[in-house]
């Protein structure tokens, strides 16, 4: 048995993991039935909402753990909360208890996920480094790749760079290239490749169907944010949309027969259609109320902390009878 500060740490970790897993369950149900409701909000609000949905289980779990463990002590943010919220034996932790076993199982699983995502990050970085070594920087700062495949993308995690192939560059007029540059530079400025990776990591514990939905929504919002950056400079939205269509058409021809279609065809069709529709129609500007979000986070945290205490009592009394 561990006693003292280390035990407090493990007890907190145990509450955090239990709360986060419960919250993932609740958030998954919300996403399954209500994610489409986000469409009425501005892209900035959608981007924030997607981050909140992905991170809320961990943030709420952390707050709930702090509330439960510090209850009744001088460190508690809620004085006199011990009457309705407390955590027995906060200074004792036994790895052979149900707390210990559930925490070890969850921690092992989380470590495996983090390791696999890190491995993927390193592998992708190495591939991108090789690409960079065989490219040449043009006057605009874009990395030109000598290839017959028409494509352009932003890649890299620490200092992202924009790439374009010679085949695509040859097909674009100066104005079209300007559209593409503004788009890719916005991705680089926002460090979107790293954020995409981090978002995947944050949603990795959600059920696969839900994490897929979240990641695709985030990818679309990131593209729309970059499209918006072009629209802030170039007023003719139909020209931006036409360029987007042209580049997609060229990329589609270049990669015909090379890629596995099954898992992404719907996304690709949907993605371009939504981006073009968003550019050409009256843009949604509805914003989230910050107070509502804060109120929701505080109430859910309190509920989670109380439920953790209740759940703890329930399990302990079941196991000891």
């Amino acid at each position: 048995m561990i006693v003292g500060n280390l035990a407090i740490f493990f007890n907190m970790l145990s509450i955090l993991v239990l709360t986060a897993l419960s919250m993932i369950f609740v958030v998954s149900i919300i996403i399954k039935f209500r994610l489409n409701a986000l469409a009425q909000y501005s892209i900035l609000s959608r981007r924030r909402a997607l981050w909140i949905l992905a991170l809320s289980p961990w943030i709420i779990g952390l707050f709930a753990a702090i509330l439960a463990v510090t209850s009744g002590t001088q460190f508690s943010p809620l004085p006199n909360s011990y009457n309705f919220l407390h955590w027995h034996h906060a200074q004792e932790f036994n790895f052979k208890s149900w707390h210990g076993l559930s925490m070890i199982t969850a921690a092992t699983y989380i470590c495996l996920i983090v390791a696999s995502k890190l491995y993927r990050l390193v592998q992708n970085s190495q591939q991108i480094n090789s690409l960079r070594a065989f490219s040449e920087v043009d006057d605009s700062g874009f990395y030109q790749l000598e290839s017959d495949a028409a494509t352009a993308f932003t890649a890299g995690y620490v200092n992202p760079k924009c790439y374009i192939t010679s085949a695509l560059r040859l097909e674009l007029t100066t104005d079209e290239f300007q559209v593409l540059q503004l788009h890719e530079r916005e991705h680089a400025r926002r460090s979107d490749p790293f954020k995409k990776w981090f978002y995947q990591l944050s949603t990795a514990l959600f059920p696969r169907y839900i994490s897929q939905k979240l990641n695709l929504s985030m990818a679309l919002v990131m593209e729309q944010c970059a499209d918006q950056a072009i629209a802030n400079v170039i007023q003719d939205k139909s020209f931006i949309a036409m360029t987007l269509l042209k580049v997609n058409r060229l990329a589609s021809r270049s990669f015909k027969g090379v890629l596995n279609n099954e898992s992404f065809c719907y996304y690709a069709v949907n993605n371009i259609e939504q981006r073009i529709n968003y550019l050409l129609t009256e843009q949604q500007s509805k914003l989230f109320s910050l107070y509502s979000v804060l109120l929701a986070v505080v109430s859910v945290t309190l509920m989670c902390a109380l439920s953790a205490d209740f759940f703890h009592h329930f399990i302990e009394s079941t196991l000891s009878h």
Binding site: R120, P193, K196, Q200, A219, N248, S252
Partner: peptide, 16 residues
């Protein structure tokens, strides 16, 4: 697609 970690102007698809 869920694991897409690049940001691209064009979605690379053969299905359109």
């Amino acid at each position: 697609d869920e694991d897409s970690i690049l940001a691209a102007f064009a979605s690379i698809s053969t299905e359109l």
